[in-house]
């Protein structure tokens, strides 16, 4: 029967009585054709046959068989999965970048992961806190995904297999709107890396050699955060109308206050609210509260504003950069 190959090429001479067809069937070892190529350890077996006639009828002779074992090609590709820079804010923690790591070689291979945050070409260095390996659903969840510890749970991938990797970072508090910070995820073959063609004798899957492919045995790709901050400025103004048609602040005069909130920057502010105490010696004019020119009731109800006896409050919620909100109310001088 067949002997297991021990080297790259095996030459075997056989008795030429077995038909080529039967031999081909015998040598039909499992061989997967994949994008990554023939699986490492597969045997490529070649036999030719000659048929001829020397006058006594057709005869057939088979050649020797050459068996080649396919060695392992080590290749890995890392891709950033985020379609655009990921927005972050100054001081934010657990900011998520998503990558995929694909074994583009032809053998099972383990990979060490690392993150580079100080690669330059950006405005600041995010502080990478953790790397997680996805459980397969593609969505980060610290409860179900696996916290990566180098050397302890390095991903082992079959040819063409991919794994999703999450990188979590903290954004420094000192960054300002528009700053960009990059993080590269690096995956390194555990068998080795080097110039394409570098080989590691006997370390390939299936007992052959491992050979570094075009990727050099390591891959990396860059993801980026973009700081999207916003600032709020408030401008308050007052207009006095006295009962005599003038603008003297006398008892009985009405003061109309206008508060303009302006949000600037590429980000937005959330939970924005405007609160103003009614000054002493003045009285709030019931039902005078407006937002953007529309009246608000004084009760704390479905609309954004209320007056509780001492102050007005208007809840603005999330306001994007570049927008303004205008609140007005009136008081009378006691």
């Amino acid at each position: 029967m067949m002997k297991a190959p021990v080297g790259g090429a095996l030459h075997r001479h056989r008795i030429p009585a077995i038909s080529t067809l039967a031999l081909a069937a015998m040598l039909a070892l499992p061989m997967q054709a994949q994008a990554a190529g023939t699986r490492a350890g597969s045997i490529i077996s070649n036999t030719a046959s000659a048929s001829f006639d020397t006058g006594g009828g057709a005869q057939t002779v088979d050649s020797n068989t050459v068996d080649l074992r396919v060695d392992e090609l080590i290749d890995v590709v890392v891709d950033s999965s985020d379609p655009a820079d990921v927005p972050t804010t100054p001081g934010a923690t657990n900011q998520l970048l998503t990558f995929s790591v694909t074994n583009s070689g032809n053998g099972e291979e383990g990979f060490t992961l690392s993150a580079i945050a100080n690669g330059g070409g950006d405005d600041y260095d995010p502080t990478v806190t953790q790397i997680y390996i996805d459980n397969g659903d593609g969505v980060f969840d610290a409860g179900t995904d696996t916290l990566y510890t180098p050397g302890a749970n390095d991903p082992v991938l079959d040819p063409d297999e991919s794994v999703t990797v999450f990188v979590l970072s903290t954004t420094p508090g000192s960054v300002v709107d528009g700053n960009r910070g990059t993080v590269s995820l690096v995956a390194t073959s555990k068998t080795g890396t080097g110039a394409p063609g570098t080989s590691f004798a006997g370390q390939g899957e299936g007992g052959g050699d491992a050979v570094i492919g075009s990727t050099g045995g390591d891959g990396q790709d860059m993801g980026a955060y973009i700081v999207s901050a916003a600032t709020v400025s408030l401008v308050k103004s007052a207009v006095v109308a006295d009962p005599f048609g003038g603008s003297e602040p006398v008892p009985g005069a009405t003061i109309t206050y206008t508060i303009v909130a302006t949000v600037a920057g590429s980000g937005s502010v959330s939970g924005l609210a405007i609160t103003d105490n009614i000054p002493a010696d003045t009285s709030y004019v019931a039902g005078s509260l407006t937002l953007g020119g529309s009246g608000l009731t004084d009760a704390a109800d479905g609309d954004a504003g209320d007056y509780n006896g001492t102050r007005i409050n208007v809840t603005l919620g999330t306001v994007a950069g570049g927008q303004t909100r205008t609140v007005t109310f009136r008081t009378t001088i006691d």
Binding site: A24, S45, A50, F52, G55
Partner: peptide, 19 residues
Amino acid sequence: ASAQPVDKFVITNPLPDAV
């Protein structure tokens, strides 16, 4: 290697699956 010509000489090589 024989002492006479061989006729209808045909060489066939099935291509290995992985090639």
